[in-house]
Design a protein around this nucleic acid. Structure first.
Length: 200
DNA sequence: CGACCGATCGTCT
DNA sequence: GACGATCGGTCGA
C-alpha cells in the first residue's frame, strides 16, 4: 500500500482523476485508531466554469478558500449545518478543482467506525454518503486545508484498479439547482457496490 | 421501497 | 434572512 503522491492530484483533468480515485483507499489514523475504506463513489467539481461548484464564476470566500490551494489538499466544509463533506483538491494552486468523496467500502477499523457512527449492527449505511463516511473516518472541519501527505489523513493505492465495465457514470447528486451543470456526468461509482449512495 | 420532511447552523447576500 | 454537494425517520402503498 502506497500513499498517492502529489503528482497524482496535480493534473488538469479532474474527471480523469476522479475516475482513478475509485478503488483507492482513504486512511485516517486518529488517537492510535486506524480506519480505512476503499473509495467506491466520487464526484468531480470542475473549476470556475462548473455551475455546481462552490468556485463557480471564480467565487472565492473564507469557506472555499482551500479549493484554491495546491493539489493534494483536503477541502472539508459543513453542509446543511450538520454534516462534514470531504473533498480532495486537484490541479495547480489557484485553480479550484475538487473531488467529493461520497462513499467507501470499509476495510480496517470497522469496529471503531461503528462506534463513531453509534451503530450496533454493521450494514451498508456505515460509510454510504459523504456525511456518513466523514463521521465513520473521524474527519471534521479541523481537517480542512490539511495535506493528504499527512500521516493521519491520506489516500493510498494497493495496485487494485477496477475494470472499465465496473465503473458507472451519472449526473451528480444534490445539484439540481445548478442549471446546465446539473446534468453533467461527473459522478463516478463502482456499479455493484452496495455502499454506493443514491440511484445507480 | 419510494416520497416526504424536519433537524440545524455556517455562509453569503 | 434564506439556503444548502445530507441524513434518518416516518408514512403510505
Amino acid at each position: 500500500m502506497r500513499k498517492l503522491p502529489v503528482s497524482f492530484y496535480d493534473r488538469e483533468n479532474v474527471l480523469q482523476i476522479a475516475q482513478e480515485l475509485l478503488g483507492k483507499i482513504l486512511v485516517t489514523k486518529l488517537k492510535g485508531k486506524v480506519t480505512s475504506g476503499r473509495i467506491v463513489e466520487c464526484e468531480a467539481y470542475d473549476g470556475i466554469g462548473d455551475g455546481a461548484s462552490h468556485a463557480f464564476g471564480g467565487r472565492r470566500t473564507n469557506r472555499n478558500e482551500v479549493m484554491y490551494a495546491g493539489a493534494g489538499t483536503a477541502y472539508v466544509y459543513i453542509c446543511y449545518g450538520i454534516h462534514y463533506l470531504f473533498n480532495v483538491v486537484t490541479n495547480k494552486k489557484e485553480i479550484p478543482h475538487a473531488i467529493l468523496i461520497r462513499a467507501l467500502e470499509p476495510e480496517e477499523g470497522i469496529a471503531e467506525m461503528m462506534k463513531r457512527r453509534g451503530k450496533k449492527l454493521f450494514d451498508h449505511s456505515l460509510t454510504k454518503g459523504p456525511g456518513s463516511l466523514s463521521v465513520a473516518m473521524g474527519i471534521s472541519i479541523e481537517d480542512n486545508g490539511c495535506s493528504l501527505q499527512s500521516e493521519h489523513l491520506f489516500i493510498a493505492g494497493d495496485g487494485f484498479v477496477p475494470d472499465k465495465e465496473m465503473i458507472g457514470i451519472s449526473p451528480r447528486i444534490g445539484v439540481e439547482a445548478a442549471g446546465k451543470a446539473a446534468v453533467y456526468p461527473y459522478r463516478f461509482y463502482i456499479r455493484d457496490s452496495p455502499f454506493v449512495s443514491g440511484k445507480k
